[in-house]
Design a protein around this nucleic acid. Sequence first.
DNA 1: TTTCATCTACGTATTTATACGTAGATGTCT
DNA 2: AGACATCTACGTATAAATACGTAGATGAAA
Lengths: 222, 222
Amino acid sequence: MKKKIYVHVADDHKIVIEGIIAVINTDNEIAINGYSLTGEEVIDFFDKKGNRVDVLILDITMPILDGIEVLRHFKENKINQKVIILSSYDDIKIVEEVLKLGCKGYITKNSAGEHIVNAIKAVANGEQYFSNDIQKSLFTTFSGQQVSQKGDVPDKFLIDSLTEREVDVIRLIVKEYSSQEIADELNVSTRTVETHRKNLIKKLKVKNSVGLAMYAVKNKIV
Amino acid sequence: MKKKIYVHVADDHKIVIEGIIAVINTDNEIAINGYSLTGEEVIDFFDKKGNRVDVLILDITMPILDGIEVLRHFKENKINQKVIILSSYDDIKIVEEVLKLGCKGYITKNSAGEHIVNAIKAVANGEQYFSNDIQKSLFTTFSGQQVSQKGDVPDKFLIDSLTEREVDVIRLIVKEYSSQEIADELNVSTRTVETHRKNLIKKLKVKNSVGLAMYAVKNKIV
DNA sequence: TTTCATCTACGTATTTATACGTAGATGTCT
DNA sequence: AGACATCTACGTATAAATACGTAGATGAAA
C-alpha cells in the first residue's frame, strides 16, 4: 500500500475545516494530522513544536496572524513546508504574493471537493496545483504584461515596498480624510501628502484614491 | 421512527456546502433536500418551483442575490419558509436585519458542526436558535448598552434606500472609474453621474468617494 | 565618503470631485 | 387626479485630486 499523505488544515472557520476533513476522508491515501484555527496556532505547530506534514492547507483570512504572514514566517525562518492556499480570494495580487512566498498550490473555496484531493496529491508529489480560475488569472497576467519572474527578483511585494509614511497616508485615506486633513494629522504640508498619494498610486498601480482604499482593505493594511 | 427533517443549503462555496452536508449526515434525523450556489437559485427553488423544506440554511454572502435579498424576497412574496442564517459576520446590525425579515436562527461559521445540527432541530421544531456569540451581541444590544455609536438613531439599513441606478454608479466607483468613465459606461451624462455620486454621499453619510467605496465593500454591494 | 532611500516641499496645469441649487420626464401607486 | 420616487440633466462655484516635474535634508548602508 502506498504511503499515506498527511495533511494539516488551518482555517478560522470550523465548518470549513470539517468540510475539508470530510472531503479528505473520502480518499484513503490522505489522512488528517491536525488542524489550526489561527495563524498563531499554525506557527506553534510547525515552528515551536517542529512538526511537519506532507501538505498544509492554509486559509488566507485568519485572526491574529493571517495566512500570508504565516508563509512569510516560514520563509524567514527557513521552514520547509509544502503549502496549499485555500482562499475566497481570486485576487491575482494575492496569488502572486503567496507564490513568491513559496506556496505550491492555490485553490479557491469555490472549488469542488475533488479538486482539493487532487491538489493535495499533486503537491505532495512535488508538483504545483492551481484552480482553473486562478490559472486563468495567472495566464492573463503573464501573457499580458511581463511580470518578470526570472531568477532572483527581489521578492519585495507591493505592500512591502510601502514606506512607513506612505502607510500612514493610505490609512488616513481609507478613513476618508482629504489631503488637507491628512496634512494636519501628520503635521506636514498638503504638498507632501499629495506627493505621497501620487507615489502610492504609482506604486500600487491603481487609478485613484478609491483604488488606494480598496487596495488597503483587501491587503489588510488597515 | 421520527419523521425526517429536510434541509436545503445555500452557500456560494461548494466546500462549505460539502462540509454542512457531511456534518448533517452524521445525524440520521436530518436529510439534505438540495443545495443552491446563488440567491437566484434559492428563489428559483422555493418560489418558481414552489418547493418547501423544513429548514433552509442560508449564507449571507452570495453572488447575484445575497442572503438578505433572499429573505426580503420571501417576505415580500409571503413565502413561508423557516430559515437559519449561516454567516461569517457577527455584525449585530445584520443579525437584527435578518431577524426582522423573519429568519429563525443565526449561526456563525465559527460554530462547531454539532451546533448546526442542534439549530436545525430547534428551528424545525418551531423554536429559535442563535450561536453563543450572537446571543451575546443581542444581549448587549437589547440590555440598553449603547452601541458606542454616540447615540445615533439606529439608521435603517441605508443600503436598502439605494436605487438601482445608484447601485450601478457605486459599483463602478469601486472599480476606480471616474465620473466620465461611469457616464460612458452607463450612457448618461457626467452631470447625471455626479448627481448620483452626490446623492450617494449624502444618503450613506460618508465624506467622499473613498467612503462610498468603503461602504460598498463593507456591505457587499459589490 | 559616497550612495541610496526616504521624507519633505514646492511649481504649474489640468482634471475630478464636491456643494449648493433647480427641474423636466416617466412610471407607479392611491 | 394627485402624490411620489426615480432618473435624468443642467448652472455656478469652490475644493480636491491627479499629472508632469524638481530638489533639499537626513540617516542608514556600502
